[in-house]
Amino acid sequence: MLIPDVAGEASGEWAELRSACTESIRELGIPVFNIFDKSTTPAVGAADLVVIVGGDSETRSFEPSGEYGSLLANGICWEYGWEGAGEPQPLPLSLTLGYWLMLTSKVKGMIIANVAFEAIAFNASPRECFLLGQELAGRADRVAMLVMGEGSTCMTVTERTRHADRAQRCDAEVTRALAHADSDALARLDPRRLRMTATGRAAWQVLAGAAIGHSFQGRLHTDSTTRNEGYFVASWTRHPDAPRPAPGH
């Protein structure tokens, strides 16, 4: 519903959440080159690598030169992006949305950082998630991560009504961890307890693996107490005195 072409007449109802996503992504430090005035934004502190991480049925990497966003597998006739030189391959739902958000939220111009797409299995163990996060964080000096994870909104309407307290506790726990950039809290998320209430658990623990051992400042752009109940958007930024400062989400 964040995508206006898909939401149709209901698009306006999601403007607040869409704006929060745009605000957070512009804090990633994605370097964009403007061909008209030959300038680069941001001029300093830009990321060398942007990694989009999201949940899927299996853990796998996608070839950046051939990826494109698609909702056909979800029964919606919508595609985004273009086929490059690599083997064309549609991205899963989480990465499709992250890709669309990144390209529509950045300032106008051409991204000049490397971009990677990494799917993590919904049922991946915390150790698998941590190891992937650490590996991703070590790929470049300045790594920005756009992490797509779903909380209790993955539950059916009936389940959310029947288990409202459990859904609220799940969202509140994740919201606190994101707001305070608490990687330890994300690392402690129990896969068994969140299996039916948060499909984003694995993606968040990839973020925890990338962040552990470093100090971040968290900022919440929106959370489950807003009009769009069950959705949260946050930014994590490395403290200036950290050895390799880099924005991360």
Rank of each mutant, 00 (worst) to 15 (best):
residue 2 L to D: 01
residue 4 P to W: 02
residue 7 A to F: 04
residue 7 A to V: 07
residue 10 A to N: 04
residue 21 C to W: 15
residue 22 T to M: 08
residue 25 I to L: 06
residue 31 P to N: 01
residue 37 D to N: 15
residue 37 D to Q: 09
residue 43 A to T: 08
residue 44 V to H: 05
residue 47 A to G: 03
residue 48 D to T: 00
residue 51 V to T: 12
residue 52 I to H: 01
residue 55 G to V: 13
residue 56 D to G: 15
residue 59 T to A: 13
residue 67 E to S: 15
residue 73 A to E: 14
residue 85 A to Y: 06
residue 89 Q to M: 11
residue 91 L to T: 06
residue 96 T to M: 04
residue 97 L to G: 01
residue 97 L to E: 02
residue 99 Y to C: 02
residue 100 W to N: 00
residue 121 A to S: 14
residue 135 E to L: 04
residue 137 A to P: 01
residue 140 A to T: 00
residue 150 E to H: 00
residue 152 S to V: 02
residue 156 T to F: 09
residue 161 T to P: 00
residue 162 R to G: 10
residue 163 H to A: 13
residue 164 A to T: 03
residue 174 V to T: 00
residue 179 A to D: 10
residue 180 H to K: 10
residue 180 H to Y: 03
residue 184 D to E: 15
residue 185 A to F: 00
residue 187 A to E: 09
residue 189 L to G: 10
residue 195 R to T: 09
residue 211 A to M: 02
residue 220 L to K: 02
residue 223 D to H: 01
residue 231 Y to F: 12
residue 232 F to G: 14
residue 233 V to K: 05
residue 233 V to P: 05
residue 233 V to N: 03
residue 234 A to M: 12
residue 237 T to A: 13
residue 238 R to Y: 10
residue 239 H to F: 08
residue 242 A to C: 13
residue 244 R to L: 12
residue 246 A to M: 09
